[in-house]
Design a protein around this nucleic acid. Structure first.
Lengths: 176, 176
DNA sequence: AATTTAGGTTGCGAATCACTACCTACTGAA
DNA sequence: TTCAGTAGGTAGTGATTCGCAACCTAAATT
């Protein structure tokens, strides 16, 4: 490896990580450029020099980030058949599964930061209409706002499949 | 302000930012600790010392990050009525709107990193059942996989509300 | 008045980022 | 089969950020 990871800096997350997978998800995707590289991948960028040009990222940082994304199983390397000097960086299943997260973040940015729809747009192949907003839904598909939600302890849920779990509710999500 | 932002370091994103709001969304949320602070906020952490203890973050970094989150309009400061030394950091509407993104990332982590459900769990208040998986849906609510999706240019969509926009399809999302 | 508490700032060493220049394996052409 | 070119990566260096510890100030408690 180029330079060994310095885990010291990342330790404080460990405690929470035991009970929540968000920190683990952020381990790789929380780094600068990771989401932008992912975006490029979804947009059909496969080669080192393409990423370099599209993103305006430094060579060593790109190299580093691609290595990490491959190590995390989000991208995979594959030699290019046309030109065996080339390496293709392709999304794995795990990488493809980040699409909802990326779209959610992008939609949030559209709504609150830029105010205008991004380009290119993700559309349904069937009718070429833009996808709907990413939202939180109940098990039966009803869209839920944060007024309809509350947090519960996992241990209480296992034994409270039907109801009578009222006392296990930690807290309602406070209205703004 | 404590120290002026050095925009030089962040410039390369500007070009893409003109056509996509993802980089803008990452401006604040892409920084280390931002999502973890957000998570704590959703879990009912409001005060400086609480964040400090829960996250194991350094004081100055927390101070810095909270300031940035307030500047971005994701959190808001409010003096505490009980104890006027205390300041409450509360999610704004903009902050609450990041819940789908955060849950999507967490669910991804559950599926691919930890393998086990996180704690606490977000449940429907009506029946106390866990929420469903965050997914991409068509305008009519159908769940779409990446096989059902393609990217289109925004300009082509505006004039292609019904169909006959075949030639404007940029590219299907490649199957893994 | 003295002490504690909440929130924050400052200084400093370590780690990371980004820019530039170099390096190397492979390709394609002469 | 040499030789220039290209894709991908490495090394060096300065700027920026992170994390730890110590200090600071205003409000609250004793």
């Amino acid at each position: 490896m180029t330079h060994a990871p310095h885990d010291k800096l990342r330790e404080p997350l460990a405690e929470i990580a035991a009970t929540c997978s968000l920190p683990q998800a952020l381990e790789t995707m929380g780094e600068r450029w990771s989401f932008m590289i992912l975006r490029a991948s979804f947009n059909g960028v496969y080669h080192f020099e393409e990423f370099l040009e599209q993103l305006g990222i430094a060579r060593n940082i790109l190299s580093n980030r691609l290595t990490r994304l491959v190590e995390s199983g989000i991208l995979k390397r594959a030699p290019c058949v046309d030109d065996r000097r080339k390496i293709e960086y392709r999304l794995t299943d795990k990488g493809h599964d980040l699409l909802p997260t990326m779209i959610a973040l992008r939609q949030w940015g559209e709504k609150w930061e830029s105010g205008v729809p991004s380009n290119p747009v993700l559309v349904d192949e069937r009718d070429h209409r833009p996808i709907g907003p990413i939202s939180i839904r109940a098990h039966d598909g009803r869209v839920l706002t944060h007024h309809d939600l509350c947090w519960m302890n996992l241990s209480d849920i296992a034994t409270a499949d039907s109801e009578e779990a009222d006392n296990s509710v930690i807290k309602r999500i406070a209205a703004v």
